[in-house]
Design a protein around this nucleic acid. Structure first.
Lengths: 141, 141
DNA sequence: ACCTATAGTTTACATCTGTAGACTTAAAAG
DNA sequence: CTTTTAAGTCTACAGATGTAAACTATAGGT
């Protein structure tokens, strides 16, 4: 599946991931208090997400339960990966470093990240090549 | 400016950032070899980016030079930040950790990241709260 | 068994995106 | 000076997205 959740769809998915499963009614109420979205908006989004395959239902004709078909975690990585794939490989590192300044990370996240980096540095290349131009990019040296 | 570059627009921007500035003709050729995009496609994209304010021109009526109004770096952080803002704060950390496994990072990027984390861990909170439901999220403990 | 409220389905519509052909006009060539 | 060529502008069009009203049918109440 190469579909991608949009920003609005993410808002819906977040509440379902958090609740584990939910009825449209629940989601409608939550989205109203979070965003003042109208019931129809939520219903439309729910169907679109269903079509994209990120949600499934228990099949009930009424008070149907919606639940995720993918872990939040995996969806996040996927979405971020897609975004990053359209950017210059050479510049990703420093952009992420910048980003990290603003992103709230828990103590344990940081420890995990440090462990990962300690591993990763062992085989890290000296430089990452720019892949913005066809062929070799002389300007990137 | 709260505009965001789309995936296709990123492709164009990447070459301009790499070259510093460029004529439409240059970009047309490069995009043809990279993506087989037709000249019109590039022209349209160029204008849309201009309208969004991420590019400016030198005003020439012909062989006009296009150049960025924002650093690649900053555009990257901005775009990633927007994406991340629609996700659960609590889950970002571990999603990024996952991501890092696949992202190529240079030796020096990793060192910088390590330095940053060493700083960041000093004031890191024990946990980051989930912000997917309105009010306090009991399910996230 | 009948009514009603509401969950679920259809339709709507403006804007954005991806992709590109057609048209205009002025710079370059002859 | 006229012609040609190509850079820049306009138009196009299907599909995605954000946002929501209108419609339908049935589960649950009386």
């Amino acid at each position: 599946m190469n579909k991608i959740l949009t920003i609005s769809e993410w808002e819906i998915m977040r509440v379902i991931w958090t609740l584990g499963e939910a009825t449209s009614n629940q989601i409608i109420h939550i989205m109203y208090s979070k965003k003042k979205w109208q019931p129809s908006t939520v219903k439309t989004l729910l169907n679109r997400i269903l079509q994209k395959g990120f949600l499934k239902t228990n099949g009930a004709r009424r008070n149907r339960l919606y639940s995720p078909t993918i872990r939040e975690h995996d969806a996040m990585s996927q979405t971020l990966q897609t975004t990053i794939n359209s950017m210059c490989s050479m510049a990703i590192g420093s952009a992420l470093i910048d980003l990290f300044d603003d992103i709230p990370l828990s103590h344990s996240d940081i420890v995990k990240l440090q462990t990962l980096l300690t591993q990763k540095i062992k085989n890290a290349p000296e430089t990452i090549n720019c892949d913005c131009l066809p062929g070799d990019c002389e300007d990137c040296k």
